[in-house]
Design a protein around this nucleic acid. Structure first.
Lengths: 229, 229
DNA sequence: TGATTGAGTTCTGTATACAGAAGCCTGTAT
DNA sequence: ATACAGGCTTCTGTATACAGAACTCAATCA
């Protein structure tokens, strides 16, 4: 009896998740996928009705969205979807580069054999997606690989910041930039090798160059798009 | 007349700052200065009465405090002052080191002659505080110098993250660690020289070592304190 | 004596109400 | 025709109300 309960308790009871969390997730999704456009005025009452809740959880979600940088909260005027400037986007990429570099260094210091195995699997998945030309799968594989490296780095503070910055970068660049191709995954191969060797300096250096190339790649596409328009 | 109005408008009208902001500031202050202790349960109604407002602005402030990492919000249980673990503190220091390093590199790239002048002034202020043995003034001078370097780096995203991380670091270490002395300010001198030359690599390297020494310094004091207890 | 159950209390989560600020639109005067 | 003033509408900011979840503690039973 006692044991049966203990076993059952391993899967926690489904707690009715706070509405504010659901609202927060819904709004970020709407912002990222472009349903809510930069600069748009978010009227609390409208959002509340649209989502079927009262204004209260909406306001709480908007508070969090502000600190996360998704919306700007002007006093007495309400919430507006944040409009990232080119400058801010460039700054985001720079910060992401140093965070990812640190992440790779830590990962090289901490990686266990099974971690390397997993990295190899993720690498293969990416190469497979590349071969098939499946863009969505490729993006997913890339994210999975970088996320796993961050998890191996085993620094919750760092992981939190990378997640924040990465989400913003994706929001800004996904609509305008295609993922990098073969070259990027060759770099991943080098990176995994360095991590496997436990060579933190080299892993960091490879990641730094890797993210810098991605940065250049994005910038070039922006410039190309700008000259087209 | 028209000109007079324009001149007057340069100082914006005093807008009745939203209560949530005042509450947020008040609570962070209470947490940092230790009035609210780690792990303590924050009851909304109590805070509201204590601050003379309703629960609503308090809740909104708590939302922001959570995303900033000052409190943990457990569903259906409310807010608890965050208890930083040793591990988290160590992670914070590591992240701060890479962010400050990047900050120094950017500062070296961007610094104008007047920035160097200002850096020299801040340096002198620190040395003066050191000579007087005025701890409070010394801490203020150190913060001012680092903050100014960050502002010269001219990266708002980076500045935001450094501010967040730095505040947490100070919260955790101020009660247990004394500021570093002469050695730290010699390192500052070297750093300013590198920035003045525009040598980003060297500035970054000096800052990296500087923050790492600070990290070691903190850790040793923690260890010493732990062995005393 | 110790575990357990159940009522009572406290606190959160959500909804609603109301006052005041900001923006808009129309009417009027120059 | 244009600028300004005034009222009207809309929305936010804040307060209050209420339902339900979590905790407390004492009474009960093994």
């Amino acid at each position: 009896m006692r044991e049966a309960l203990t076993a059952a308790a391993s899967r926690r009871v489904t707690r009715p998740a706070p509405l504010r969390q659901a609202v927060y997730d819904a709004l970020t999704e709407l912002i990222i996928n472009g349903s809510l456009k930069p600069g748009q005025h978010l009227v609390e009452a409208e959002l509340a009705e649209h989502l079927g809740v009262s204004r209260q959880p909406v306001r709480e979600a908007l508070q969090r969205l502000q600190t996360a940088g998704w919306v700007d909260l002007r006093p007495a005027q309400g919430a507006f979807v944040h409009s990232p400037t080119e400058e801010e986007a460039a700054q985001l990429l720079g910060v992401r580069a140093v965070l990812e570099t640190y992440s790779a260094q830590l990962a090289a210091q901490n990686a266990k054999p099974e971690d390397i195995t997993r990295l190899d699997e993720l690498q293969l998945e990416g190469v497979a997606a590349l071969a098939e030309g499946d863009v969505e799968r490729l993006v997913a594989a890339n994210t999975a690989l970088h996320d796993f490296i961050t998890s191996v780095a085993d620094n919750a503070v760092l992981a939190e910041l990378i997640a924040q910055v990465g989400q913003k970068v994706r929001w800004y660049y996904t609509p305008i930039a295609k993922p990098r191709g073969k070259e990027a995954w060759n770099e991943h191969t080098q990176l995994i090798k360095a991590i496997a060797k436990g060579d933190a300096d080299r892993a960091g250096e490879i990641m730094r160059k890797h993210t810098e190339r991605t940065t250049d790649f994005y910038r070039k596409q922006i410039a190309a798009k700008a000259s087209r328009d």
